[in-house]
Amino acid sequence: HHHHHGSGALAALHAEGPLAGLPVTRSDARVLIFNEWEERKKSDPWLRLDMSDKAIFRRYPHLR
């Protein structure tokens, strides 16, 4: 159930192989992290948004 927010940013994801479903670039990863943060913020208003490279690598090590 993907609803768009204002920016309408869509992340490019790997379609197949071992990385299927994972973001292709760091900016794609940022979109995913932001979208998930927006969702989680509803139940956790104090949740901090962390889109640093460090956060991205921790989450998606293949982007190193």
Rank of each mutant, 00 (worst) to 15 (best):
H1V: 12
H1D: 11
H1E: 12
H1I: 13
H2L: 12
H3D: 10
H3G: 10
H4T: 10
H4W: 14
H4K: 10
H5M: 14
H5Q: 14
H5C: 15
G6L: 15
G6A: 13
G6I: 15
S7P: 13
S7F: 14
G8Q: 10
G8K: 08
G8H: 13
G8I: 11
A9E: 12
A9I: 15
A9W: 13
A9M: 12
A11F: 05
A11P: 15
A11G: 06
A11T: 05
A12W: 10
A12N: 15
L13F: 06
L13Y: 04
L13T: 09
L13Q: 04
H14V: 05
H14F: 09
A15Q: 14
A15H: 11
A15E: 14
E16W: 10
E16C: 15
G17N: 05
G17H: 03
G17Y: 03
G17K: 07
P18L: 07
P18V: 07
P18E: 08
L19V: 03
L19P: 02
L19N: 08
A20C: 08
A20L: 11
A20H: 09
G21C: 06
G21S: 05
L22T: 03
L22K: 06
L22W: 04
P23L: 01
P23M: 01
P23C: 01
V24W: 04
T25M: 04
T25I: 01
R26H: 09
R26P: 10
S27K: 14
S27W: 15
S27Y: 15
D28T: 02
D28N: 02
D28Y: 03
A29C: 01
A29W: 00
A29H: 00
A29I: 00
V31K: 11
L32G: 01
L32Y: 04
I33H: 01
I33D: 01
F34P: 00
F34N: 03
N35F: 15
N35T: 11
E36K: 04
E36S: 05
E36F: 05
W37Q: 02
W37M: 02
W37G: 01
E38V: 15
E38M: 15
E39Q: 12
R40T: 06
R40I: 06
R40A: 13
K41Y: 08
K41T: 08
K41L: 09
K42C: 07
K42A: 08
K42W: 07
K42S: 09
K42E: 08
S43L: 14
S43K: 11
S43Y: 15
S43D: 12
D44H: 09
D44Y: 11
D44L: 06
P45I: 06
W46M: 14
W46C: 11
W46K: 13
W46N: 14
L47W: 12
L47C: 09
L47I: 13
R48Y: 07
R48A: 10
L49G: 09
L49E: 01
D50W: 04
D50Q: 04
D50S: 04
D50A: 04
M51D: 06
M51Q: 05
M51P: 02
M51I: 15
M51A: 06
S52D: 04
D53C: 08
K54A: 13
K54D: 15
K54R: 11
A55L: 10
A55N: 10
I56S: 00
I56Y: 01
F57R: 04
F57C: 06
R58E: 13
R58Y: 10
R58W: 09
R59M: 08
R59H: 05
Y60A: 01
Y60L: 01
Y60G: 00
Y60W: 14
Y60Q: 00
Y60E: 00
P61C: 03
P61H: 02
P61N: 02
H62T: 01
H62G: 07
L63D: 00
L63T: 01
L63W: 00
L63Y: 00
L63F: 03
